[in-house]
Amino acid sequence: MNTSETRRPTLMVVHAHPDDEASQTGGTLARYAAAGVRTVLVTCTDGGQGDGVDGCKPGHHDHRPEEIATRRAHELAKSGAALGVSHLIRLDHPDSGLPDSPDDIDPRAFSRLDGEPIVRQLEALMHEYRPDVLVTYPPNGLSNHPDHVRTHDLTTAAFERIRTAGGFPAQVGVGTRPGRRLPKLYHIALSISRLKAVGTLAQVSLGPDAWTPPLDMGVDDDDVTTVVDISGFWDQKLRALAVHASQSDAQALLGMLRLTGRENPVEEYVRADPPWTGGERETDLFQGVVDGG
């Protein structure tokens, strides 16, 4: 992957909440930022249904979504800096919380909002930054969280509008051809074999009752199309996750990754577009991307 003199290759990652960027794509963002890629992180919600002071949950009398959102915005900024993110964009839609939580029926929540204005927001951001690679969740949101699922749906809708428009106009210059192009689209993935390996290591290190990611978050190994080596960026990923200190889930995951992650530090993806037709797995999200687009 060569950096163009006229335009830097661009990676856009669209997440639901503050801390998702570190836990799921932190190594990827750090790796490509270090390679000179322009990294654009879009976070759709304010995270206001996360943990409050002393870990209080939604529904507790001390749970104040506005204060939590402010705290998490600061944490997100620190995480982005740790990962070398070039552009951090907070859409700040209200966090939906988990299913059946007190805020889940709030019509202002991200998962309940009219999707059309948000699709237009995302489409405008794609036109502004013209990513070569676009990353978001798979259709089930990876974890079936309503905000993750909505992020997938709306990001995909915006991508399809870019496709209908014929893609982005390609930059004309020395050694480039006029035309139009679409970004490559990837879904975040966790392979079943990797989930099993992490679970075994966690239980050996932390005991049989240790929390481990459920296997239903995973995909068959054969469905993983792209494996990004983040061995040189593992510590950055952990530092970024550590700054989300207000969130117990993030800190539990951090503890597990510290024990289990160094064995084979990679982040996995499924290439959704152009569709995978088989063959050798990719090791680079930018494989086949031509500079100057």
Rank of each mutant, 00 (worst) to 15 (best):
P94F: 07
E123Y: 11
L257V: 13
V219D: 03
P169E: 09
M12L: 11
D235T: 10
I118N: 10
Q236P: 13
G199T: 06
P18K: 07
E268A: 05
P131M: 00
L134H: 01
E116Y: 06
S111F: 12
G279D: 01
P275N: 05
G232M: 09
H61L: 15
G179T: 11
E123V: 14
G50Y: 03
L238C: 04
T151L: 03
D220N: 08
L285G: 00
D291P: 13
S101D: 05
P138T: 03
L113N: 04
M126P: 06
A35I: 00
V42W: 03
G292W: 02
R161A: 13
A109D: 11
M1H: 12
P131W: 00
L91V: 11
G278Y: 09
G279Q: 07
N144T: 13
A240W: 01
P274L: 02
H60M: 10
S23A: 13
E268N: 05
V40Q: 00
F168D: 02
A242S: 15
R180K: 09
L285E: 00
S4C: 04
D19V: 10
I89T: 07
L125F: 09
L98R: 10
A272K: 10
A240D: 10
P274M: 04
R271Y: 07
T225R: 14
S143C: 07
D114K: 04
P117Q: 06
L241T: 05
A33Y: 01
F159D: 08
D20A: 05
V85P: 00
D106V: 06
G97C: 11
I89A: 03
G293Q: 14
R108H: 12
G48I: 02
N144H: 10
F168Q: 01
E75Q: 10
D235L: 03
P265E: 05
H93F: 14
E66N: 07
R90A: 05
